[in-house]
Amino acid sequence: MTSTELRIENVSFAVGGISILENVNLTVRPGELMGIIGPNGAGKSSLFNCISGIYMPTAGRISLAQQTLTGLSPVAVARRGIARTFQNLALFENLNVTDNLMLGRHRLMKTGFATAAFWFGRARREEVIHRQACSELVDLLGLGAAANLPVGLLPYGAQKRVELGRALAASPDVLLLDEPVAGMNIDETEQMATIIGSIHQQLNITIILVEHDVHMVVGLADRICAINFGQVVTVDEPQAVVSHPTVIEAYLGSEWS
């Protein structure tokens, strides 16, 4: 396996004169689960957007396995094997669960308009193979009963899982998860944490996890990066980060133990 190291070097980003990220440096090792924590508005989601090519950094470089990502379109970034979820759900609401996951597999498939239109051999074969893969994922995520329902009709927690499934369906090398348990109850959070943990262990992919549930991040992450005001405060082992004085002051508060 080639080394899928994700490097973020001196990345800055600004909109309309307001600086949102400043000189962010972060190297995520292959197969690592990197947690990112920081207060609201710190720039965590913006960092994800810079990685996925939705935002164009004003300075700096992002690379995956030594190949530059900065300047690529979101489509090109996706083709390099980076998948993500969004903080505020971004599902294809009118499509059912299976179709949402099948869109995750879009980049792994080839069928174009012409082959699809006449349903030539490959179109059908490809469809069946990838549906198989998706239906396994559907069961893994505990969504079997809802597979053929439009996702817009599902409860919030299930929708969050569909979004994770959609990103996983892409067989990514790097998975960016933006607040996967935000707004979930304790049971749902537990379930999601288990899923993320087992993905990490079994699939051996690099994961970057942005989450306000610090207990969960500490439990799952190999290392944690704390961000405040668009700047990296510290990157270290989970326990070291949560006992870092600046992190406690800016984010965790003194009640944190």
Binding site: S52, G53, P74, A90, E93, N94, L103, A116, E127
Partner: peptide, 19 residues
């Protein structure tokens, strides 16, 4: 595949692009 892509663009074009 192509038809799903069209519907994805209709529902959420940014999400479609990151896929």
């Amino acid at each position: 595949r192509p038809g799903r892509a069209l519907q994805a663009i209709r529902d959420r074009d940014t999400a479609a692009e990151v896929l």
